[in-house]
């Protein structure tokens, strides 16, 4: 099962990188999303997969009876998902506003901050 998940992680990250290499903002956004999910899945796999019960202590007991799944990777993933969600929603709004104000979603055409046709610097003091 670990092997299957490792291959899936690889696929996710490859797809994310492929989409990020595109010039269109929307594809880059999708790429970030897929890449982030791949990384989350990787953390999940890194915490070792078990078929044990969920890491919840039943009422009345001080600790769980028998083996439980490792709760730490799940906490890490939850944090990462929340943060990734916040970042993604910001980037989504940003891409939308950029599309409205710059009238393009192609990063090659976004040259306002770095003008492509800037003249050479003066050659003397």
């Amino acid at each position: 099962m670990d092997l299957v998940l490792a291959v899936v992680v690889g696929l996710f990250i490859a797809l994310g990188v492929y989409l990020l290499l595109s010039r269109a903002l929307i594809r880059m956004l999708m790429g970030m999303l897929v890449l982030g999910n791949g990384v989350n899945l990787l953390i999940f796999t890194a915490g070792r997969l078990t078929r044990e019960v969920a890491p919840i202590v039943p009422p009345g007991l001080e600790q769980a009876p028998g083996a439980i799944a490792n709760p730490l990777p799940q906490a890490l993933i939850l944090t990462a998902i929340v943060i990734g969600f916040a970042m993604f929603s910001f980037l989504l709004v940003l891409a939308y506003r950029a599309y409205q104000t710059l009238d393009c979603d192609d990063t090659d055409e976004m040259r306002l901050a770095e003008p492509a046709d800037a003249p050479n610097p003066p050659l003397s003091y």
């Binding site: 953390i43 990777p73 890490l76 970042m87 940003l94 950029a98 990063t107």
Partner: peptide, 25 residues
């Protein structure tokens, strides 16, 4: 214009950091 480049590349950097963290863990 600046924020698009800043945003995507810095988010990518922290995602790579997270990737390294997962492997380290």
């Amino acid at each position: 214009d600046g924020a698009v480049k800043y945003g995507f590349l810095n988010f990518l950097a922290t995602t790579l950091f997270l990737l390294a963290l997962g492997l380290l863990y």
